[in-house]
Design a protein around this nucleic acid. Structure first.
Lengths: 203, 203
DNA sequence: AATATTTCGGAACGCTCATTCCGAAATCGG
DNA sequence: CCGATTTCGGAATGAGCGTTCCGAAATATT
């Protein structure tokens, strides 16, 4: 037999859980990008041997794609959670913006931005498969935001004359921007200005 | 003697102009990023031999930094030109936004985004020297936009209650976002929505 | 206990990387 | 036209890359 021991029971058992290995690999790709992450880095980070890594996940790119999907899923769920929380949608959107601005991290530790944004700029222009994934992710986030905005309109939180889809696209773009801007400056006043002006569009 | 033949006159003359070589190197870094551009790529693109490249520009990173500075200078001048053109500032800002959205490129050819944004996400988080350069660039662009906005206020084009600096920061962020978003989608309607909503902040 | 099957650690492979080195070529001042 | 000086093309270097391979170890079944 070849790959995947899934559920059947013969042969030496694995000493790792796939999902946690993917998580650790994800951390490396997140910190260093795709090209700058070597297989040796992945070996060191996961604790697996090269042969185990290749046996379980295929080549570097396969593992990367899996990590990327896991990241996008997780991110999407977090976004959904924040947007569907009770209370004003405006507060939820503020939370999303501040998260993208890196408000979570301590002022001394280095922020690492957003894997999706980093990968879009590193590979998006030349790798059609990656570009397609990024497009899907964008559309999904746009849809999540548009749904929240429609709800906000229904609740009278924002006026009816605004186009939820256009607004959602604008917000996705602002989030992209913040992921870049927060890497380019450590000046929190700059990021605060951006968040406030962005939110003012909802008035 | 060692490096630099500048002006003095002995030895075999160079067969290239530094600035055009930097320009060609810039193209490679722009297309492929820093890590993914090999010295061989630079040799092929510039037509120079390895020894000439190293002799004239030092190691890869040095050449890259020089190309990056050249890009930022050129970009800054273009921005200045657009912003200081006669006519309403709003039109100039629209032009900047549409340029960042990739409106210049034909629909079939692949856009390559903005070198500064690409490098910020590739290296900004871990390379302090690069991060500092990006910070300077951001501040410079913010200042250019703020100046234009102050002029717009003076001319009564936008209302006095708006803070030009906060607005400038918001616009820089929108430009960053568009550089990313335009790589993630080929849907021009999305980008148009973003440009329009972004401009609506000036109302 | 013996066998089949799978994963394990780690060596090995071929290739590309950034950088250095060297002899030949080209131009200068004298 | 000769010797000093600089740049030229291209080979050489050593390290690191992604990927494959192989024998030993570990389990389930017989």
């Amino acid at each position: 037999m070849r790959e995947g021991n899934e559920g059947c029971g013969a042969g030496r058992p694995r000493t790792f859980e796939e999902e946690t290995v993917v998580e650790k690999a994800l951390g490396e790709f997140w910190r260093h990008g795709y090209e700058a992450t070597s297989v040796q880095d992945l070996v060191d980070a996961t604790g697996l041997s090269r042969s185990s890594l290749y046996g379980a996940f295929g080549e570097k790119r396969d593992l990367f794609l899996r990590a990327l999907r896991q990241y996008m899923d997780c991110n999407g769920k977090q976004m959904q959670t924040i947007l569907s929380a009770p209370g004003p949608k405006r507060a939820a959107i503020r939370q999303l913006l501040e998260r993208a601005a890196g408000s979570g991290s301590a002022p001394d530790e280095t922020p690492q931005g957003c894997l999706v944004v980093n990968i879009t700029t590193e590979l998006g222009a030349h790798d059609p498969e990656i570009a397609a994934l990024m497009g899907e992710n964008l559309t999904a986030n746009e849809a999540r935001l548009a749904a929240a905005l429609r709800e906000a309109v229904a609740q009278g939180e924002i006026t009816e004359d605004k186009d939820p889809v256009a607004l959602a696209r604008f917000l996705v773009n602002a989030l992209h921007g913040l992921r870049v801007t927060s890497l380019a400056t450590r000046d929190r006043a700059v990021l605060q200005n951006i968040v406030e002006v962005t939110l003012s569009v909802l008035d």
